[in-house]
Design a protein around this nucleic acid. Structure first.
Lengths: 147, 147
DNA sequence: GTCATAGTTAACGTTTACGTAAACGTCAAT
DNA sequence: ATTGACGTTTACGTAAACGTTAACTATGAC
């Protein structure tokens, strides 16, 4: 089960595994332009089937696209995202490959945890601002919740 | 106490509040080039004192720079970071200003929490890969910890 | 004095991540 | 048969975030 194709975790109903999507459909769903999706293909991030010239996206392609966009939201470049995706398509038969995969996964996890520490700190600072401002407003007899 | 100048939280010793830094010093400490620091100044993100032409950075400037870089690591654009920084320099005397500050803080916090949910999900996926690969290696009689 | 070191501005170059036409094919509906 | 909605490729444009020279200045060491 690859990272970018695990929608049958147990609760996420795969509705119709055979379902295919048009580029317009996906661009609407994810609120991006078709241009962006084609660009990701040029960059080797997704490889939809073709029916003649027209691109046909599978459920897996859709999941993969969602994964890419989440990576973007987290601040990863497309190059980094490609690396991460590639990471899980490598041959997992050999012990050497498995060790390498494990090593790189651990490195990536460490990186992510640093990022989470940053994020938590950032959030806490803003929470503090929020509470201070709320307090200040209450002291002035204003209800912070009102409009 | 502004967001980008709170290093005396209680434990973080302000060493020398009067300390000043050169651009080279800061670029070394944060592992960025002087060009980057000057660029941030052009973009209005930091405003160091000048002694003639030479820039002199205060402890506050240094803290602020660190804050900017953390923002970058979290995937914010410089424009967004500037907005966030500006947010805390606005006049906090009027009730109207305070309400607006509160509102925007809450919006930002909500955004950050979405990001954290993304990040947690991302981390969990990679942890699962890690554990699966470890298991696979053990089944093959290999110690995942060894070199 | 001049040499090295560290600072400056100015301006053009580069990479990333798309946007924006232009010019065309396909098919269903009017 | 043409209009419209959707798809395609090719290619140039652009904003963001710096990198990279170039040319100059100031300062302390020798």
């Amino acid at each position: 089960m690859s990272v970018a194709a695990s929608s049958s975790a147990k609760g996420a109903v795969p509705r119709d595994t055979q379902r295919i999507y048009s580029i317009a459909e996906l661009s609407r769903e994810f609120a991006i332009t078709p241009r962006t999706i084609r660009f990701y293909e040029d960059e080797g991030l997704i490889k939809p089937r073709r029916q003649g010239m027209t691109r046909l996206y599978s459920v897996g392609d859709r999941t993969r696209l969602g994964w890419i966009l989440r990576g973007k939201r987290l601040g990863f470049s497309l190059a980094e995202i490609r690396e991460l995706l590639d990471l899980y398509q490598v041959d997992r038969t050999g012990v050497q490959q498995l060790r390498e995969l494990l090593r790189r996964s651990q490195l990536h996890i460490a990186d992510l945890e640093r990022k989470r520490a940053d994020l938590d700190q950032h959030i806490n600072e803003f929470r503090e601002v929020e509470s201070q401002v709320s307090t200040e407003l209450r002291q002035r007899g204003v209800d912070p919740e009102g409009d």
